[in-house]
């Protein structure tokens, strides 16, 4: 993503002067460096907070691993073995540093609930969740764009109605929407399977819709607001005065201005989609990171929860980076900053 932006940016300034080209390249490099550095800092913060959460949880972690803590009496010998195995007998600082080091190179440890290496669990379940979230986001964009463009030309009544529909759809809870879709499409119409098998396209439809509809509502709200502003702007009047049609003003001018803020917001939506996946994967019995997280929380497998949280944070950081650079591509020169 960023190299495309880099090239565009350089092209824009290169036409000025050789100094401009040099400056443009330096600015782009500088920006990439700061972006990468701040992403690293965020990840460092996430791992540190996770570590503190792990150790601040009341109770002996070794006892938790051994089996629940309460009721069952675990011998001190077994606990000592567990401490040995998980490095819990080392000083906190050392534990913290080794967690940083391990997470940094993708070693997340062992999940006693799933009796598997966490790295290979993530490898298996990350794909289906990513597929779900990315498809849902794409679907939300399509729905929102189509809806806003359709209602933008319809005058005051259409946009008032549109705003109501958007607010309604944005406030739909995932668990309710999912159950409703199952009732409609699986139980009544028998068109789609209620259980979403990995790799099945029909099985993906309802989970994606469940995630995409509320997100599309939010997106459409943002798009409609900035679209209305852009349609009122003097440059839109100028375009009309050149003989541009209303559709031309909408598609060629206003839409581009409307898209930038919606892209910025999409990064936050992506985070919401990942957390929405926890609910949706349960409703549709779909394997994925969300279910893994549920299992981990249920079984108090703190190591597993920490790993999933870290990966989710990483996805979120990547989504933000992508959105940042996409906005710069749509709106180079940062036209509105000065």
């Amino acid at each position: 993503m960023s190299w495309v932006v880099f090239k565009r940016h350089r092209k824009g300034l290169a036409t000025l002067t050789p100094l401009g080209a040099h400056l443009g390249a330096r600015l782009a490099l500088w920006r990439l460096a700061t972006q990468g550095l701040s992403a690293l800092l965020v990840m460092f913060g996430v791992v540190s907070v996770t570590f503190i959460a792990l150790r601040v949880v009341p109770g002996d972690p070794a006892r938790l691993i051994a089996g629940g803590g309460s009721g069952i009496d675990v011998s001190e010998v077994v606990l000592q073995q567990i401490r040995e195995q998980y490095g819990l007998n080392r000083p906190l600082l050392q534990q913290y540093l080794s967690m940083l080091y391990d997470f940094g190179r993708g070693q997340f440890g062992y999940s006693y609930i799933m009796r598997d290496d966490i790295g290979s669990i993530l490898q298996r379940y990350l794909g289906p969740t990513l597929l779900l979230a990315v498809t849902a986001l794409a679907c939300a964009w399509l729905l929102a764009l189509a809806f806003v463009l359709w209602s933008a030309r319809g005058g005051r009544l259409a946009s008032a109605l549109g705003a109501v529909v958007e607010t309604l759809s944005a406030s739909l809870p995932h668990f309710w929407l999912g159950a409703l879709l199952i009732m409609l499409f699986s139980v009544q119409l028998r068109w789609l399977p209620a259980v979403s098998e990995p790799g099945s396209v029909p099985g993906l439809v309802m989970p994606v819709l469940t995630l995409a509809l509320p997100c599309a509502g939010y997106l459409a709200q943002i798009l409609r607001g900035s679209l209305a502003n852009a349609l009122q702007a003097p440059f839109a009047l100028s375009a009309r005065a050149r003989g541009e049609s209303e559709w031309g003003v909408l598609l060629r001018h206003a839409l581009r201005h409307a898209i930038a803020p919606a892209i910025s917001a999409s990064a936050s939506f992506f985070g919401a989609l990942i957390s929405g996946a926890v609910v949706v994967e349960s409703v549709f019995s779909r394997p994925g990171l969300g279910r893994v997280l549920m299992l981990g929380v249920d079984g108090r497998d703190i190591q597993l929860v920490a790993a999933v949280v870290t990966v989710a944070a990483l996805l979120y950081v990547i989504a933000n980076l992508a959105a940042d650079n996409l906005v710069r591509w749509v709106d180079p020169g940062a036209a509105h900053e000065h």
């Binding site: 009047l237 005065a241 020169g333």
Partner: peptide, 16 residues
């Protein structure tokens, strides 16, 4: 008919 508005910073589309 050509039409020129006041402030070119906002009367030309800043993204194009």
């Amino acid at each position: 008919v050509g039409f020129v508005l006041q402030d070119a910073l906002v009367s030309l589309d800043p993204l194009r």
